[in-house]
């Protein structure tokens, strides 16, 4: 069981937020080497554009395909751990395939605010060990056209 951290700042070009959901970061299980369950125990949503008072809608949903995005190397929290077997991609230019009505969490939040969630042991968001099953961390806004940031910490088991 190894822990990893990833954010959409690690690779690629941040994409502008628009009125439709933009996926900032996606993690998924992969049978490339061996499918393993992924358990997300922390996420942080925020923006890094010009501050203003407007609403941001953040969402975490299940996915079945990754879309077009930049590959991101998740960083092991313990440097002695091996590389993640699943896939981490971010800054999507083509949205992933999101399962309908699969939002695990969504909230409307002021653009100036940062929202962080930390799970206690046993209460993580779980991705099954199924090829291409994943979680998309995405954002949209009716007014904000700058960029967003999401940071994840998760375990692969």
């Amino acid at each position: 069981m190894a822990g990893y951290a990833a954010s959409n700042l690690l690779a690629g070009t941040q994409q502008a937020i628009s009125t439709a959901y933009k996926t900032l970061l996606l993690i998924e299980a992969s049978t490339g080497t061996a499918a393993r369950r992924i358990k997300v125990h922390e996420f942080v949503f925020g923006t890094d554009g010009t501050p203003a008072d407007q609403v941001m809608t953040y969402d975490v949903s299940r996915t079945t395909a990754a879309g077009t995005a930049t590959s991101i190397t998740a960083l092991p929290l313990d440097p002695a751990d091996a590389a993640m077997l699943g896939l981490t991609v971010g800054n999507h230019t083509v949205e992933p395939t999101v399962t309908a009505a699969s939002s695990l969490w969504a909230a409307g939040i002021n653009q100036r605010a940062t929202h962080r969630w930390v799970a206690f042991p046993g209460q993580e968001l779980v991705i099954p060990a199924t090829n291409l099953a994943g979680l998309a961390f995405r954002a949209k806004s009716p007014g904000y056209t700058g960029t967003g940031v999401v940071q994840l910490e998760f375990q692969e088991q």
Binding site: R112, H115, R116, G122
Partner: peptide, 9 residues
């Protein structure tokens, strides 16, 4: 099972 921490100005 967890905490949400909402930080704003």
């Amino acid at each position: 099972g967890g905490v949400f921490i909402y930080t704003s100005p």
